[in-house]
Computed example of a mutant assay.
Amino acid sequence: MAAISELAVVEEGAEIGEGVEIGPFAYVSAKAKIGDRTTIGQCARIDGDTTIGEECRIFSHAVVGSIPQDLKFHGEEVKLIIGDRNTIREFTLLNPGTEGGGGVTKIGNDNLFMGYVHVAHDCIIGDRCIFANAATLAGHVEVGNGVVVGGMTPIHQFVKIGDLAMIAGASALSQDIPPYCLAEGNRAVLRGLNLTGLRRNLPRETVNELRVAYKELFERGKPLKEAAEALLAGAESEEVKAMCRFVLETKRGIPYERMKDDK
């Protein structure tokens, strides 16, 4: 049975799961769907056609599902879909999609959004990501699994970030970051592999293969896509293949410091 404060506003039509807790002065729209055992804190707002999975924690003054901050938005039907066990801290803002991006913003499972994070329209976010305080994602950003974005870091629209990548705090990212890599700076550039994250998630042999691949791609001075094609042709590791495919498919380019061929 849900525990809803008498001071909360839950519009007729909202679907509220078992064990949901809704604090005083919170608002839940008529089109919202709230999964079992999710908690919605005091003064939080769940707006629009928003689906929230099970066991999420939404803290005070978070705004989830309010209309996109896009001048092309004209009231069309759009959605925000959030998976299970996400933590959404104070004053975070999550927007739904727009007609130009398929109409859906989608967030996976087990993510942490710290205070004042903004996820704009049409973003796609995987599982187990961490967005530190005041990280901001513009529209159409795609983020893989296990990604960490440091505080005060803005990410340009249409940027893609691969699995287990890390973007340092107070950076400004305007190009794509391949999986397993670490980027830092304003503008952010590759600084190497996210070795701490890799060692926590991948076997040592795979990490060593990725170190060799990173050097071949970004430190040999060869044309980037030529190096990626050569590596992909001979790679056995799925992780190395994923890195090469990402490089070959990038639309915004990879931000790395060009070096002379060391042959």
Rank of each mutant, 00 (worst) to 15 (best):
H121G: 06
I167R: 02
D261V: 00
M152G: 01
F73A: 03
G83S: 09
H121C: 07
N111G: 07
V20G: 08
H61V: 01
L202Y: 15
E209L: 12
D110C: 13
E99Q: 13
T153P: 08
V159E: 11
G144P: 07
I22F: 03
A168C: 06
E184G: 00
H61Y: 15
A233V: 03
P24F: 00
S66L: 12
L94Y: 06
A230N: 12
G115W: 09
V240R: 15
G108F: 11
I155D: 08
G126N: 07
R37H: 14
A135G: 05
K222E: 10
I124Y: 08
L195W: 02
D261R: 15
R57C: 08
A227N: 13
T50P: 14
G100Q: 08
P179F: 03
L164W: 11
G65M: 09
C244R: 07
E238F: 03
L202G: 13
R128N: 10
L182A: 04
P255R: 02
D262K: 15
M1S: 11
H140M: 04
D70E: 11
E76V: 07
N109Q: 09
E209Y: 07
R187A: 02
D36L: 06
A132H: 04
K222A: 02
N111R: 10
L248D: 11
V117K: 09
A227Q: 13
I161A: 04
G102M: 01
A165N: 05
L94T: 01
E216P: 00
V117M: 08
F91A: 05
L190K: 06
N133H: 02
E90W: 11
K222R: 10
C56Y: 12
A213Y: 09
K72H: 14
V10S: 11
L248Q: 08
K79Q: 10
A233T: 12
G41Y: 04
R200T: 06
L217C: 01
L71D: 01
E77T: 14
V141G: 01
E21D: 01
L173E: 00
A235N: 09
I67Y: 04
N86W: 06
D262G: 05
V63E: 12
M259I: 05
E12D: 14
N109W: 09
I52V: 10
A242Q: 14
E205F: 07
G221Q: 01
H74A: 05
R187Q: 08
F246Y: 14
L190P: 10
V63H: 12
A62Y: 08
D261K: 15
S174D: 08
I82E: 10
K260H: 04
E18Y: 05
C43I: 00
L231F: 12
F91L: 10
N145G: 04
K215M: 00
I107E: 09
C56N: 15
I34N: 03
C244G: 09
I167D: 02
D261L: 03
R57K: 15
V10A: 05
M1E: 12
C56V: 13
A235Q: 04
N133Q: 07
A233I: 00
T92E: 08
D49E: 11
G17E: 02
E18P: 06
A138N: 01
D127T: 03
G97M: 02
Y116H: 13
R45S: 11
R187E: 07
G221I: 05
S5N: 07
T250I: 11
I4R: 13
R89M: 03
Q175D: 02
H118V: 11
E236N: 14
A30I: 01
L137P: 07
I88M: 00
E6W: 06
